[in-house]
Design a protein around this nucleic acid. Structure first.
Length: 376
RNA sequence: GGGGAGAUACCAAAGUGGCCAACUGGGGCAGACUGUAACUCUGCUGGCGUACGCCUUCGUAGGUUCGAAUCCUGCUCUCCCCA
C-alpha cells in the first residue's frame, strides 16, 4: 500500500491524497462504508460502486470469524472473492467489540475472551490470532488488535488500557511479520492510537506507534462517549505527532460535521455505521440538514427525496413515499435511506477534497457545518 | 320466532365496588443511534397546566352506595346457536 500526499490546503491541516492498494486507488479524504458481516447492509455492490461511489469498504474480523467462519472465507479465496467487492477492503480487528460487547467478554493480558453474540460459545482473541484471522479474510488494510477504551475512562484505567494496547500492538506486528498474505496481493497493518481523553496518554501512544514505520496509522477510542470538544482536541494532539506522509484513519467517526472537523485537523480516512444504521432507522443526512423521515411533516411532501443529492434514489422517489416505506417497515425504505446517506457521505468527502485542492476548504467547511446539523 | 353472549380510550383487549384516567399489544406522535449483539431502543399517547393538581370519560337513561367501568332496572345496538 502506498500513500501519496497530493496537497495540503493553504493555512490548514486538511489534506488530499491517494492511497494505492493492490485492489485500486482511493482518493482521500475518504469515507469508508461499513460492511460488518461482509455486506454494506441493504446495498448492492453495483450501487456501492456506481451510485454511491464508494472506493473502499470495511469488514469486521469478529463477525466474519464467527460467521461464515474462516474455512468458508478461505475456500472462497478471501473476502473480495466471497462478497464480490473487488475494490480495497479494510477489516477492523474486533477491538471495537472489546468495547461494545463489554458484558460478554473478559479482558486479560493474553487477549479478549468473547462469548459469541450468536450462540454464546466462547472464543479467545489474542493479537496473534487476530492477525492470523485477518490474513485469512485478506483485506488490503488490516487493523491492530486493541482495547477501545471507553470515553469516560478514568486516567489510571485509560493509561493501563493504552499500555496494554501498545503491548498488543507489538505482538500484532511480530505476528504480521511472521506471516504472509494468502491470496497474492499485499496487506498493510495499521496501529491504533488509544489514550482516551488524556493528552499526555495520546501523545505517548502516538509516539509509540511511530517506531513501526507502518503504512498508515489510526486513531481509536474516540466517539465512544467523550465530548466532541475532547474528541477534536485528541485528534489535534495525535496528528501533531503522526507523520505527514502516511494516511491517518479516525476510527468510527462520525456525523457529517465530525468528518469535516476531522478533515480540517488532518484526518484522511473515516468510517461509521451512522449513514446506514441511522438510515435504517429513518434518518437522512443532507446538505441542508437532517431529516427524520418518520416525522409527520413529510407525509404529504411529494417533492424529491433530496434535490441536491447525487444518488439515483434522491431523484426517483418522493419524500412522502419514502416516509410511507419507513413508517410501514418496508425493506425498501431502509435501502433508499441507506443508499442516500452513503451517497451523501461520499459526496461530502469528495467535495471536501475538491475544496482542499482549490485552497477553499476552510470557508466552505464553515458554511457546511452551519447547515449540516439543522433539523429539517 | 327461541336461546345465549357482549357493548371499555384511534383499533384490539384486560379490568367485575375504592389501589382506575383505566393493564397489555397494535397504531399514532416525538427522541436516540458514531471502528454494527441494532430494519433497534426510549418516551408520550382523554382535556387543561411546567408541576402538586383540576375537569370530563368505560353503549344510553335512571337507580343503589360514603364511593360505580364494576351492582340493579329500562332502552339502543352487535355477535353466536337453534328454527
Amino acid at each position: 500500500m502506498q500513500f501519496e500526499l497530493k496537497h495540503t490546503a493553504v493555512g490548514t491541516k486538511a489534506r488530499a491524497g491517494f492511497i494505492t492498494t493492490d485492489h485500486g486507488t482511493v482518493e482521500t479524504p475518504i469515507f469508508m462504508p461499513v460492511g460488518t458481516a461482509g455486506s454494506v447492509k441493504g446495498i448492492h455492490k453495483r450501487d456501492l460502486k456506481d451510485d454511491i461511489k464508494a472506493q473502499i469498504i470495511l469488514g469486521n474480523t469478529y463477525h466474519l470469524y464467527l460467521r461464515p467462519g474462516l474455512s468458508i472465507i478461505e475456500q472462497a479465496g478471501g473476502l473480495h472473492k466471497f462478497n464480490g467487492w473487488d475494490g480495497p477492503i479494510l477489516t477492523d480487528s474486533g477491538g471495537y467489540q472489546v468495547f461494545s460487547l463489554g458484558d460478554i467478554r473478559k479482558l486479560s493480558e493474553e487477549g479478549a475472551k468473547f462469548q459469541s453474540h450468536i450462540d454464546g460459545s466462547a472464543h479467545l482473541f489474542t493479537p496473534e490470532k487476530v492477525m492470523d484471522i485477518q490474513r485469512v479474510i485478506g483485506a488490503d488494510i488490516i487493523m491492530a488488535f486493541d482495547e477501545c477504551t471507553p470515553g469516560d475512562a478514568e486516567y489510571d484505567y485509560a493509561r493501563k488500557s493504552m499500555e496494554m494496547t501498545q503491548r498488543w500492538l507489538d505482538r500484532c506486528i511480530n505476528q504480521f511479520e511472521k506471516t504472509s498474505p494468502m491470496y497474492g496481493y499485499s496487506q498493510s497493518l495499521f496501529p491504533i492510537v488509544q489514550g482516551a481523553v488524556y493528552p499526555d496518554l495520546r501523545e505517548t501512544a502516538a509516539r509509540n506507534v511511530l517506531q513501526y514505520n507502518s503504512d498508515g496509522y489510526a486513531i481509536g477510542g474516540l466517539s465512544v462517549g467523550e465530548s466532541e470538544k475532547d474528541m477534536y482536541a485528541m485528534i489535534e494532539v495525535v496528528n501533531e505527532i503522526l507523520p505527514e506522509d502516511k494516511p491517518r484513519y479516525l476510527m468510527g467517526v462520525g456525523t457529517p460535521v465530525n468528518i469535516l472537523e476531522g478533515i480540517e485537523r488532518g484526518i484522511d480516512m473515516f468510517d461509521c455505521v451512522m449513514p446506514t444504521r441511522n438510515g435504517r432507522n429513518g434518518m437522512l443526512f443532507t446538505q441542508k440538514g437532517i431529516m427524520n423521515m418518520r416525522n409527520k411533516k413529510w407525509a404529504d411532501d411529494f417533492s424529491l427525496v433530496d434535490i441536491d443529492g447525487t444518488s439515483f434514489v434522491d431523484h426517483h422517489y418522493s419524500r412522502a413515499f419514502l416516509r410511507h416505506l419507513v413508517i410501514s417497515g418496508e425493506m425498501l425504505g431502509a435501502q433508499i435511506a441507506s443508499q442516500h446517506n452513503l451517497a451523501f457521505y461520499l459526496w461530502l468527502v469528495g467535495e471536501a477534497r475538491k475544496q482542499i485542492l482549490a485552497n477553499t476548504f476552510t470557508s466552505w467547511k464553515e458554511e457546511m457545518v452551519q447547515q449540516l446539523s439543522v433539523r429539517l
